Amino acid sequence: MTFRIRAARASDLQHLYEMAKLTGGGFTNLPPDRKALAAKLDRSGAAFARDEELVSDELFVLMLENAATGEVRGTCQLFTQVGQQHPFYSYRLGTLTQHSKELERTFRAEMLALTTDLEGACEVGGLFLHPGERAGGLGLLLARSRYLFIRAHRARFADRILAELRGIIDEAGGSPFWDGLAGRFFGMNFQDADQFNATNGHQFIADLMPKHPIYTAMLSEAARSAIGLPHPSGRAAMRMLENEGFHYENYVDIFDGGPTMTARTDKVRSIAEAREHPIVAIDGDGGTESLVAVGRLDDFRCAFGMVREAGDGIVLSRACADTLAVVEDDVVLHVPRW
């Protein structure tokens, strides 16, 4: 396989824009807006250029590239610490229990409370794989490469990590959750609100959204049934996150009601199990299929390869070495593909 992950460049704007047009809406981190995407690439370029080992409010954009042809077929993003420039809002689903002695009945009411509990966490997001490439594990390569990037730059990322999954979107591109809740206060449909958020940030939520808890019993059935559920296309991503050690802790997206998954950064499986070794030989004689990464910041690359241990180092498959442009004695990060 000749696909590899690399740092995004300013010249990737057209690639990002073409992919953004394929998302189908509800994809806040990849809006089909050239100005917003160019701003993301500028911000990412600044993050790649900074070499200080401390947490700041940064964005890294990575690209999936066919090393043989130069074609770009996917992208993903990492946010080092959310909620520093603008509040990072979520809904937290909770329960209020009340008892009536006279009626001899206990009532349990579900409520959605607007919260900034997740402020300060780092975030993995913005993952998109071209529909023509959704086979062969490239989605897994995109997703897990982010954890090896974090491992290689651990001091740049917060100790808690989150991932937001897109919620239920109907065939018309609307959101039952938005229509049943926020849309009643904002006077705009989901597509307009989503686009505004993607290009202008969350502040309008703080300005207009009621701060008191919302009883879910007051929502429509369609809105209630969407709470905490991922879009059908995101179910595999949710399983992948669970396999990494992420959990759903009743936080949902304020726009579409999709689940927000959280974990402790150092407990994420790919981060915890990644190992660093020098390459002692390059050949094609078997081993364990693994994700292999090398380089720092804008020189970061990641690809699939066959790895086997050899003393204090590893033997790497020739195909992977060529894809990553590494040679003997280079030090790489690797973690088994599972």
Results as ranks from 00 to 15, higher is better:
residue 287 G to Q: 08
residue 74 G to T: 07
residue 260 T to G: 02
residue 245 G to F: 04
residue 159 D to A: 13
residue 24 G to Y: 12
residue 155 A to S: 07
residue 209 M to D: 04
residue 179 D to R: 15
residue 100 S to A: 04
residue 9 R to V: 11
residue 157 F to L: 12
residue 123 E to P: 01
residue 145 S to C: 11
residue 156 R to V: 04
residue 156 R to D: 03
residue 214 I to M: 09
residue 214 I to C: 02
residue 208 L to E: 04
residue 123 E to K: 06
residue 55 V to C: 05
residue 46 A to I: 12
residue 36 A to I: 01
residue 251 Y to A: 05
residue 181 L to Q: 10
residue 27 F to D: 04
residue 128 F to G: 03
residue 121 A to E: 11
residue 81 Q to E: 14
residue 164 E to V: 11
residue 157 F to I: 13
residue 209 M to N: 06
residue 265 T to L: 10
residue 306 M to R: 07
residue 323 T to E: 00
residue 131 P to I: 06
residue 38 A to R: 10
residue 256 D to H: 03
residue 78 L to W: 00
residue 296 R to L: 13
residue 51 D to W: 11
residue 110 E to F: 03
residue 45 G to E: 01
residue 145 S to D: 09
residue 52 E to N: 13
residue 115 T to V: 15
residue 101 K to F: 06
residue 73 R to P: 02
residue 168 I to Y: 06
residue 313 G to W: 05
residue 15 H to N: 15
residue 50 R to W: 11
residue 246 F to W: 08
residue 210 P to F: 10
residue 84 Q to P: 02
residue 86 H to Y: 05
residue 269 R to W: 07
residue 54 L to V: 10
residue 99 H to R: 14
residue 35 K to F: 07
residue 175 S to M: 04
residue 234 G to A: 13
residue 201 G to S: 02
residue 168 I to N: 07
